[in-house]
Amino acid sequence: MNRRALIATLATIGTVGCLDTLDGDDDGSEDDEPTGSPATGSSTRYETCEREVVSYGEFPDDVQAEIDEAIDGGYEAEEIHLASAIDVDETYVSHDRAYYLATIEADGERYRLDLEADDEPELSPRRFTLENETGSAVTGTVTVRTSDGETLVETDVDVEPDSDSTAASITRIGVHAMEVDLDGRDPVEESVGVSVSSFDGHVEVFDEEIIVSQAVADLAPCPWDE
């Protein structure tokens, strides 16, 4: 997936970072007006959630309403609160098993939010390292396929004893089948995945077995969901 350049006709976005959260009090004075980013129309209503994917149900109600309208055909307003809740240039919005990319355009003093589904969503690579724990070199092929049979990775491996090598680097979101087919051994197939909660994995080769493992962790809540 090619990350989008955020479309804007006003000022260029500044450095991405956490934004201060408003306390909700407003006496109407000029000092209380949020500054935000003029390029996205965002206020500082929410602190940015620095994740690759945020699901619809995690967002505050007003952001969910923006998402609903954007998916249905586009949302226009003087402020786009989604733009402060996430980094719209880097984060997917997931909803009903689809992954959406956000685009924000400026039109005078108003902004338009559109969300387009990505048919082949990708995250940063999850790398699987083959570790040879035997006394001789291992050779063969490591293949990763999607649930519908598309080959994502096919890597020839040749790893010396007590050494390791990258066997696969996977970016496509989903649960996939990894087949480890080493010379002189029966092939081994295990499920591996790419998600916001998955990490790198290992293919450990022993004399009597091959173990495929991958770490998965619970997600910390977004700062506005704590």
Rank of each mutant, 00 (worst) to 15 (best):
S136H: 06
T143G: 04
D61R: 04
D27W: 12
A177G: 12
T48V: 15
V88D: 09
Y46F: 13
G108D: 06
Y99R: 07
S94A: 11
S198Y: 04
Y92P: 05
A106L: 02
V16C: 01
A167K: 14
D27Y: 09
S191N: 10
N132V: 04
N132E: 00
G17I: 07
D148E: 09
A39V: 12
I86F: 01
P38R: 15
A220P: 06
V175G: 00
E50M: 11
S42N: 15
M178G: 05
V175P: 02
T15N: 06
S213D: 08
I80E: 04
T171L: 12
Y111W: 10
F128A: 08
S198K: 10
A177W: 01
D207M: 05
T21R: 13
V138I: 01
L6D: 10
T9Y: 04
E78Q: 00
D87T: 07
A85I: 04
I170N: 08
D119T: 14
R3D: 04
A117R: 08
E189R: 15
E190C: 02
F59C: 02
D183R: 13
Y56Q: 03
G24V: 01
A65V: 06
F199N: 09
G135K: 07
R97N: 13
L219E: 00
F206V: 01
V153P: 11
G14L: 02
G135T: 04
L123E: 12
D183L: 14
V144C: 07
A177N: 13
D207A: 15
P38I: 14
I104R: 13
P221G: 00
I13N: 07
H81M: 00
T44Y: 08
P121I: 11
D72K: 00
D183A: 15
E122D: 03
D96I: 11
F199E: 12
A137I: 03
I210N: 12
E189H: 04
V192N: 02
D158S: 15
G41M: 12
L182E: 03
A168I: 09
T35K: 10
V63K: 00
F59V: 01
D218V: 07
L10K: 06
D96L: 03
V157W: 05
H202E: 12
I104N: 09
T103L: 11
E52S: 15
L6H: 09
D218K: 07
S43L: 04
R172V: 13
E204V: 14
D32S: 15
R97A: 15
E52K: 15
G74K: 01
G14D: 11
S197E: 14
C18F: 11
A98F: 08
G14S: 02
I211C: 01
E154I: 08
S191F: 10
S169C: 09
D31Y: 03
E204G: 01
L19G: 02
D207F: 00
R3Y: 13
V142A: 00
Y99N: 13
T151F: 05
L115T: 08
T139H: 09
T166Y: 10
S165G: 03
E109W: 08
L19W: 10
V138H: 03
V212R: 07
F128I: 07
G41H: 09
C49E: 11
E122S: 12
D200A: 14
G41R: 12
L130K: 02
G57F: 05
D218F: 01
T44V: 09
I170Y: 05
I13C: 05
D207Q: 13
E204M: 12
E116F: 00
V159Y: 11
M1V: 08
